[in-house]
Amino acid sequence: MSRILLLGPAREAAGVRDDHIEGATVGEVLRGAVDRYGSTFEEVLKVSKIWVNGEPSSREQAVGPQDEVAVLPPVSGG
């Protein structure tokens, strides 16, 4: 069970900003997120970058209860 943080358009598509989802890897957590939030979220996820604990991550990276998986759609600050 990892914490997932959904930001900007990902937050809007999922309907929540943070949640807890089962999964031994980043990829498994994200598959669980798609199952939970549906196709609109899946579309946003396709164009998003993934960070774990504030650092860019691969889908294969192992995660546990202390880890935070963040979904970052394309950014537009400044």
């Binding site: 930001l7 759609p73 950014v75 537009s76 600050g77 400044g78």
Partner: peptide, 28 residues
């Protein structure tokens, strides 16, 4: 900051709002 900091901008007008379309993948 514009390219590498996680930040999202929503455009707001009197009858609605939407995410800015001027967005790009976050980079190192």
């Amino acid at each position: 900051v514009k390219k590498g900091v996680p930040m999202w901008k929503r455009e707001v007008w009197p009858t609605g709002s939407a995410w800015s379309q001027e967005a790009h993948d976050i980079v190192s």
